[in-house]
Nucleic acid binder design. Structure first.
Length: 279
DNA sequence: AGTGTCGCCTGAATGC
DNA sequence: TGCATTCAGGCGACAC
């Protein structure tokens, strides 16, 4: 489910609920042995009594760093969501709540994931940095080390369609199906073009559109299609601003000529685009 | 090495 | 109404 903007919103929610005095983990409860991967052995013991020092994000991953070292690597998969019950607010168990953090202040943080494609792992020290996928992950699109020349260099020689290349987290981190479709539409580039064959001006435009769409989506609280929720249960709004995603058959916002948004399949995933303006 | 296909899971929407 | 099929925001194992 969640792509970079949604994960960023969740990260901020965790930061405001789990950081600070009195917010140490009183107990971690795991309601099953695994999600996509088995939970790290003895993770409950490793977390008990520990306090967080920072909540960072890398691509679609949340890195919850602990005081005195160590980090939780948290991924929401396709259907994961995190619900925060503040101190004094009663936790109400939901189907598919797999991991529960009970905080010293009485609050509860529940990790819910119906499809169980998400995961939660504990790494000692800074060892997660050398582990995959972080070791070979592409640049943060909203960071200082992402720009047109960097994008061009990473796409150089790639024969795969630009749509598929942008979904590759080794090229750019954090993009998923929604925001790739939206960014390509913004740059008026066909998803079918060979990734390594874009003109310099197109790469420039694309890098800018990637940053722009992600920034706007974060400002709108992310996109809520089915499972995604804010940590207070609220919905994102950016789904109302999609130009092409999930709009097959509708008219393209850039087309005065009554052209229609089409859906095609690339690498097994739906791509939405306007053949008239994306060339 | 780079690229495409498939499977992992549940649940919602659609088709018959 | 009920059952089968299809599809979904991600990722990685595998085959070529």
């Amino acid at each position: 489910m969640p792509e970079l903007p949604e994960v960023e919103i969740v990260r901020r929610g965790l930061e405001s609920a789990m950081l600070g005095p009195g917010r140490a983990v009183a107990r971690l409860t795991l309601n099953r042995p695994d999600l996509r991967y088995p939970f790290t052995p003895f993770m409950e013991r490793a977390l008990a009594g520990r306090a967080f020092s920072a909540f960072e994000r890398r691509g679609k991953y949340i890195i919850a760093r602990l005081q005195e070292g160590g980090a939780l690597i948290w991924h929401l998969g396709m259907s994961g969501s995190i619900r925060i019950y503040k101190s004094g607010e009663a936790y109400s168990p939901a189907l598919h709540d797999h991991a529960l953090f009970t905080l010293a202040d009485g609050g509860t943080v529940a990790f819910n994931d119906p499809r169980r494609f998400g995961f939660l792992l504990y790494y000692e020290g800074d060892s997660w940095r050398e582990a995959e996928p972080f070791a070979s992950m592409g640049p943060e699109p909203l960071g200082n080390d992402f720009n047109a020349p960097v994008l061009a260099a990473r796409l150089a020689g790639r024969k795969s369609p630009i749509k598929t290349a942008l979904l590759d987290q080794k090229i750019v981190a954090g993009l998923g199906n929604i925001y790739v479709c939206e960014a390509l539409w913004g740059a008026r580039i066909s998803p079918l073009r060979a990734a390594g064959q874009l003109r310099e001006s197109e790469t420039e435009d694309l890098a800018g559109q990637i940053r722009a769409v992600l920034t706007r989506a974060i400002a709108a609280g992310g996109s809520s299609l089915r499972d995604y929720r804010h940590t207070d249960g609220g919905l994102g709004c950016f789904q109302h601003s999609f130009s092409v995603y999930d709009r097959e058959g509708e008219s393209c916002p850039a087309c005065g000529k009554g052209c229609r948004i089409e859906r095609i399949t690339q690498a097994g995933r739906s791509t939405f685009y306007c053949p008239a303006v994306q060339t």
